[in-house]
């Protein structure tokens, strides 16, 4: 256990993290590329088409991972913000600042792929389906955090304000999710569920899981890259940055 604590403490010092992240990024980026490529190949070529939706079901291999990971992004942003707030760790705020735009991009991706998928399924691009609507609200929450963070001149103040909003938001995300589902079942007959997770056969499950893993690794790499930028932004005055730059 204390090996982890020393690693956690070491990692909290920005210069150490900066160098470690620099080495770690390729280790996450290359496996992510390989996994996603394999999953795309399986999804596009190998896996069967759906008896009802035909080939459009292949959109699921892109839509579902980005939808799941957008939720994961918001929660991990809130966790990073909470760590930053409680232990006053500047690095944790940098991680939260890095996750927010990545999460917003994924939510946008999930929205657009969901809308495109809606066209063949329901005949129109935008349908107030339960999942798409809660994705939309999640996008608003993400944009709120991003906008609040850079509304403050002082970076540390912006971090702490965005941390409060992220924590308040993460408490509300499940409530929003269920109330939107509740609202959806009240108004529409249960339309064809876009991502019929229950009961999809194994040949479809494999590419989906591979893609989710690929996206996760990609996301970790992207967040490490963005955190390095945020660390540089926050520590540009410090000596280790100047040494780094001059060497």
């Amino acid at each position: 256990m204390n090996a982890f604590m020393t690693w956690f403490y070491q990692m909290s010092s920005p210069p150490h993290f900066y160098r470690w992240a620099g080495r770690a990024i390729p280790w996450f980026m290359w496996p992510a590329l390989i996994l996603s490529a394999v999953a795309a190949y399986l999804g596009l070529v190998r896996s069967p088409e759906d008896y009802q939706m035909g080939h459009t079901v292949r959109i699921m291999y892109v839509h579902v991972p980005s939808a799941w990971l957008s939720m994961w992004c918001y929660t991990s942003m809130a966790v990073a913000s909470a760590i930053g707030w409680i232990w006053r760790m500047k690095l944790a705020h940098a991680v939260a600042a890095a996750i927010a735009p990545a999460g917003a991009a994924l939510t946008f991706l999930a929205l657009v792929t969901g809308a495109i998928w809606g066209k063949p399924t329901w005949g129109t691009y935008w349908v107030w389906d339960a999942r798409l609507t809660s994705e939309l609200v999640l996008l608003f929450l993400f944009m709120g955090v991003v906008l609040l963070r850079n509304a403050f001149e002082d970076r540390a103040q912006g971090d702490r304000a965005a941390a409060i909003l992220a924590i308040v938001g993460v408490v509300n995300v499940p409530i929003i999710h269920y109330s939107v589902n509740w609202w959806n079942t009240l108004h529409q007959s249960a339309s064809v569920s876009v991502a019929g997770k229950s009961g999809i056969d194994s040949s479809m499950l494999m590419p989906l899981l591979l893609m989710v893993l690929g996206f996760t690794l990609y996301l970790v790499a992207l967040i490490l890259m963005r955190t390095r930028n945020e660390v540089l932004l926050r520590e540009s005055r410090k000596r280790w940055v100047q040494e780094l730059v001059q060497s």
Binding site: L44, T56, I59, V62, H63, S66, L109, V112, T113, W117
Partner: peptide, 9 residues
């Protein structure tokens, strides 16, 4: 419908 999604991603 499928290709735009993959390309956009």
């Amino acid at each position: 419908y499928v290709w735009p999604c993959y390309v956009l991603t």
